[in-house]
């Protein structure tokens, strides 16, 4: 198990997850996932959020930081 970095994600800063989702496209370790929490019937695009679900596979390359237009995430090395 890897687990060298922690990704601090801010849902407040990530405002248009559904249409943007650039971090998903660039991540080489497939860390991020886009999903709608608390979904029952039908879901509006605004309800989607991005979560660094598999963050313990993060290798700290910083590709997501470079593409994020809103600075919604930080990569923090684990001590």
């Amino acid at each position: 198990m890897k687990n060298h970095y922690k990704i601090k994600w801010s849902n407040e800063k990530c405002t248009d997850a559904f249409n943007c989702a650039k971090c998903l496209e660039v991540c080489p370790e497939a860390v991020f996932a886009i999903y709608a929490p608390n979904r029952e019937e039908g879901v509006a695009p605004e309800e989607y959020v991005i979560s660094p679900a598999m963050q313990y596979f993060c290798n700290g390359c910083g590709a997501c930081l470079a593409v994020c237009p809103n600075d919604a995430l930080k990569i923090i090395p684990k001590s």
């Binding site: 198990m1 687990n3 996932a33 886009i34 999903y35 709608a36 929490p37 608390n38 979904r39 029952e40 979560s51 660094p52 679900a53 598999m54 963050q55 313990y56």
Partner: peptide, 25 residues
């Protein structure tokens, strides 16, 4: 179909913390 995304994102995030400890894993 409705909940597969939530299950993955939430379970993966929770499992990750547990997997750091060998006994918990």
């Amino acid at each position: 179909w409705q909940h597969v995304h939530q299950q993955y994102a939430q379970l993966a995030a929770q499992a990750g913390d547990a997997m750091a400890d060998p006994v918990m894993a």
